[in-house]
């Protein structure tokens, strides 16, 4: 999540600006915790399919690592492209 996605605070009085900043921080914390949870769920679902052992097998661990790394790279790329589109839309207005 990128701060620029959220709100333009410059026009607000000081007290409101502070309150808004706290709100944005809270949303970012919640967002990164949710992202963490859905990353775990996705990589678990895609990589773990046999339940003959209690512990993660070597090839499952490799799969999870790659899945997580790929997802993070993907997510950054989406963020960049999305920001460009938002930028373009903003300058067209």
């Amino acid at each position: 999540m990128d701060k620029s996605m959220l709100a333009d605070l410059d026009s607000l009085p000081e007290a409101d600006k502070q309150r808004m900043t706290v709100m944005i921080d809270q949303l970012q914390i919640r967002d990164s915790l949710r992202m963490y949870n859905s990353l775990v769920e996705r990589c678990f679902s895609d990589c773990v399919d046999t339940f003959k052992h209690k512990s993660l097998q070597k090839q499952e661990e490799t799969c999870v690592r790659r899945c997580a790394e790929k997802f993070l790279k993907h997510s950054m790329r989406v963020g960049m492209r999305f920001a460009e589109l938002n930028q373009g839309a903003a300058t067209q207005d």
Partner: peptide, 17 residues
């Protein structure tokens, strides 16, 4: 076993991050 493996994946991704 599923709970145990889910727990391991949670920790593994936590470390990666």
């Amino acid at each position: 076993r599923c709970v145990s493996k889910y727990w391991h994946v949670t920790n593994l991704i936590g470390q990666l991050l």
